[in-house]
Design a protein around this nucleic acid. Structure first.
Lengths: 223, 223
DNA sequence: CTCAATTTAATTGTATACAAAAAATGTGTG
DNA sequence: CACACATTTTTTGTATACAATTAAATTGAG
């Protein structure tokens, strides 16, 4: 795995926590490369919105509730549109890809150690496959390109991290609903179903944030 | 002006034409800096979609008619949404900024030498000011961030380059229509007016491309 | 002891050298 | 003359040194 993927994944899974400062030298040491390739990775991750530039160096971006609302509003808009377009323009191959992605999701849905990070990552990736199959099926390269930048993987990871078995099943079911709408060329239905599906993920992240701040209050961590 | 702005503007105004190959060494010589800062600029411009990576080096991206349709569909979706949100959440300051931008546009609209590149750039910037004022007024940082990446400046430049006086006036008028809707907190009206306004720009670019290929046909340049 | 000024350390920005990879050129053979 | 193969040149990727900038620590005055 190259430097970009390694650092990105560390941010996604929270090994580098929000607010943590990342210096070029530190990362260069961590990955045993010089600062030159690290610099490029940092610039890249900044443009993806995963890092916030400081006057000196970068910190891992943290997302407020308002950030999450805004990001997910955007996702519903763009991915909803993509689902609608996919319903209009999908090819048989596109449909096959979506079905395949859902099969994969079913396989990895309940694994031995569902708390393990690598298990969560597998589920996240299967989920991504389905969504990306729809983006491809929209047959709009630019839409695809920009959606990939709107989707903030650390948040997606979080929502799946906190999903229990029932919620995973419900997520798969909504995938099936979206898929059916696209099969039936029902554009508006596909858009709305995707809209709702994404808001479910948003609500999970928001709810978890609430629970966290509740606990903080109990423990008197109100600073 | 720094390396990033210099190179970006050269692409926008077409000094570096679509398809032209840009090597690090060439640009380093051109701007009298070393390759290091140039590399970062190239990566940045690639992520903005202005450059296409080759196996070795980059070429200036060229946009097909299909690209243009897709890009402008995205713009209508996002900027339309932004206009709608602006109608709901705008503050008095926001409105002031929009009015100010339109005043500026009126000032630079008919200048001495309207064919001159710097004149066109002034109009493009005034136009940008109005649009950005709306993005700010939507009070959604993430929406703003992503719209800035969806708007492809070389295409905006082109559409204004080919606008005649009447079309510039019409463009200002549609700004006024959008502004009124936002003043009246008429969200849906603002969204639709913005939608239509952006499609006008798209059509100009597409029409000009048509005229170009017509001329090519006449001159027997069908290769 | 507190705060400002100055010094010191940490960190990024840029240039440059060299290694690695790809593209272009040249050469010989059928 | 076309084409495969070897050679040269171009161009990018990485490491590293040093300059410029910012943050941290220290010192001294009030």
């Amino acid at each position: 795995m190259d430097a970009y993927q390694t650092i990105k994944e560390s941010i996604i899974i929270g090994k580098y926590r929000p607010g943590m400062r990342l210096t070029e030298e530190f990362l260069a040491g961590e990955l045993n490369v010089s600062r030159t390739p690290i610099r490029e990775v940092l610039k890249q991750l900044e443009s993806e919105g995963l890092l916030t530039p400081l006057r000196r160096g970068m910190i891992v971006r943290s997302f407020s509730k308002e950030d999450i609302r805004q990001i997910y509003d955007l996702r519903t808009l763009l991915e909803g549109y993509a689902a609608g377009q996919a319903a209009l323009f999908r090819t048989p191959t596109d449909l096959q890809q979506m079905r395949e992605a859902n099969r994969l999701y079913e396989q990895v849905m309940d694994q031995k150690d569902p708390e393990e990070i690598s298990s969560i990552l597998k589920i996240v990736r299967a989920n991504q496959h389905f969504h990306e199959a729809i983006h491809v099926a929209s047959h709009n390269e630019h839409l695809r390109f920009h959606i990939s930048k709107v989707v903030v993987l650390p948040l997606v990871f979080q929502s799946f991290y906190w999903y229990d078995r029932l919620e995973r099943i419900r997520s798969l079911e909504s995938h099936q609903t979206i898929l059916e709408a696209i099969e039936n060329r029902d554009s508006e239905r596909a858009r709305i179903a995707m809209h709702e599906h994404i808001y479910q993920g948003r609500d999970k992240v928001l709810k978890h944030l609430d629970e966290l701040s509740m606990e903080d209050l109990k423990e008197g961590k109100n600073d």
